[in-house]
Design a binder for these strands. Structure first.
Lengths: 141, 141
DNA sequence: TAAATTGTAATGTCAATAGTTACAATTAAA
DNA sequence: TTTAATTGTAACTATTGACATTACAATTTA
C-alpha cells in the first residue's frame, strides 16, 4: 500500500509553475513533460489544485499560474487537495462481532491510537510549506 | 487509499488470544468469528504473527498462543509483521524528467520531508504496546 | 476563422485487497 | 489405529483504485 503519486505529482506541478512559470507558459503538456506522465493526468491535478484555490488555469489560451503565495501552501494542503487519503488512513475491519467482548471493544481501544498516528504524519506535512521547498531548490541550483 | 485492514485484524487477533485465551482454545475459527472474517484470513494473519515471533500456532490439534509478552509488542511491530506498507509510505512518480531543472531535483527536495512524515506516523505507533491496550481493555470492562 | 489548449468522459490495464473453496498434512483423542 | 478437528497453503474470483490513454467538445486568442 502506498499513498497515491497524485500527491508528489501535485507538489511537482506547483513547484514547476513557480520555477518555470516566469519563463514559460505552463501548459499541461509542458508540466507533463517535466513530471513525465500523460498531460491528462496533469489537467486533472490542476483541477484539484484549482478547486483548492492554489492555481488558476486558463481554458483555451492555456497555462496555469499560482493563485496563492507558496508560503501559504503546506504539503498537507496539497495532500488534502488531491485527496490522497479519504478520511481515515487505517482501514478498520468492518464488522467485528458485537457479541464478543473483544469484538465489541476493539474500536474503542484502537481508534484513538490510529488517529494519533495519522495526525502525527499529517502534522509533519503541515510543517513544510512549498516556499520552504522553493528555498531549498534555490540553494541546490 | 487506506492501510490494509490486515493491521487491525492482526491487533484484534493478538488481543483476542490474550483476553480469551485462558478460557478458550483460540482456533482460527473462533478468532474469525470475533473479527468477523473468513478463517483463512486469520490463518494467514497468524502465519505472519508467527513469523514475527509473536505467537505459536499448533497445527492439527489447533489453537494459537502468545509467544512474547504483550508489553514487548508495539503497534509498530504488528504493522511491520503484516507488511502494511512496503518501504515508502508515499508513492513517488517514477521518472521525472532529468532534463528539466525541476524534474531533476524533485526527489532531492521531497524525499526527506516524505520520510519525516512517515517516520512521525511510525513513531506514534511505536509508542503504544499491546499491553497498553490490554490495560485499557480492563478499564473499560 | 484557425490553432492551441483545456475540461472531461469513456475505456483499458494492472496490482492489491479481500473473500472463498478445497484439500493434504498434522495432531490428539476415542 | 481410526476418527475428528484443525492448520497450512494453493488456487481462484471479485472488487476496487491507480494510472494511462484516446477522443472530442468547449474555450480562448491571434
Amino acid at each position: 500500500m502506498k499513498i497515491t503519486s497524485r500527491f508528489t505529482v501535485a507538489v511537482h506541478t506547483l513547484l514547476a509553475i513557480h520555477i518555470l512559470g516566469q519563463q514559460y507558459k505552463m501548459t499541461s503538456e509542458l508540466i507533463a513533460s517535466s513530471v513525465n506522465v500523460n498531460p491528462v493526468i496533469i489537467r486533472r491535478t490542476l483541477q484539484s489544485l484549482k478547486a483548492a484555490g492554489f492555481v488558476e488555469v486558463k481554458a483555451g489560451s492555456g497555462g496555469a499560474t499560482l493563485a496563492k503565495p507558496l508560503g501559504e501552501i503546506t504539503l498537507y494542503d496539497v495532500y488534502r487537495a488531491v485527496d490522497c487519503v479519504e478520511g481515515e488512513l487505517f482501514h478498520f475491519h468492518e464488522n467485528p462481532n458485537p457479541d464478543c467482548p473483544v469484538g465489541k471493544n476493539i474500536h474503542a481501544l484502537l481508534d484513538k491510537h490510529l488517529a494519533d498516528a495519522q495526525l502525527a504524519m499529517e502534522q509533519s506535512l503541515r510543517s513544510v510549506t512549498l516556499a520552504d521547498l522553493a528555498v531549498e531548490y534555490s540553494s541546490i541550483q
